[in-house]
Write a protein that binds this DNA or RNA. Structure first.
Lengths: 101, 101
DNA sequence: AAAACATATTGACAATCATGAATGTAAGGA
DNA sequence: TCCTTACATTCATGATTGTCAATATGTTTT
């Protein structure tokens, strides 16, 4: 099994600014300008993080004339949690003992 | 609120090799040598990943004479899942609308 | 004490990443 | 058409990361 996709998914959660963005968006659809107001980062940096969040599928964007609104993709978060559950559950295989006696 | 600790926690899940290690350990206490046998990485690289996993608190190590055995710290995984739940749940604050009209 | 084995640390390197200044693009208003 | 606003992209830079060879440390065996 290859874990590349899941590793990529968790990269969305590896940056404090992205975690704060997710937390803000979790309260409801949020405009870029509100995020920019609350985070102490530049506009290009915010744009960079939003691209990562959208590419990872965790966040969905919607354009309304000049503005862009973001929402959480709850399905993907559920997938992340389900993956963590599956990952940490014994998969039937008995734990192989140390190779050397 | 500061998300530095949580961002650090998720870094444990950001590498495919570490995800595979976690998956292997989830079947039961596992020796370094077994991990080294199953992963296609060098011994120093494995040691590096185990250090990250232990420092993040997700994995616990135990020495038995020459060998070191690893187990998952299930509590920490539960914390991670609980954090994801809290993060993606509306925190009461109504979503602030776009600053500009 | 010496050799063999298991794991950790150091050092070097290439790759990725977060950041912001400058610039580009798209949309609305004058 | 020009100007302003909102966001994206490009580019450069410093920091972090994953990797392995070489070496060190700790443990058991001979």
């Amino acid at each position: 099994m290859n874990y590349a996709l899941q590793a990529r998914m968790f990269k969305a959660f590896c940056d404090e600014n992205r975690l704060q963005i997710i937390d803000l968006i979790s309260d409801g659809e949020t405009c870029s300008c509100v995020l920019l107001e609350k985070l102490e980062i530049s506009q290009p940096t915010l744009s960079h993080h939003m691209k990562i969040l959208c590419d990872s599928g965790m966040v969905i964007s919607r354009r309304d004339s000049k503005w862009i609104y973001y929402t959480l993709n709850q399905e993907r978060f559920d997938e992340a949690k389900a993956f963590l559950d599956a990952l940490t559950t014994a998969s039937g295989e008995p734990p192989k003992k140390c190779v050397n006696t």
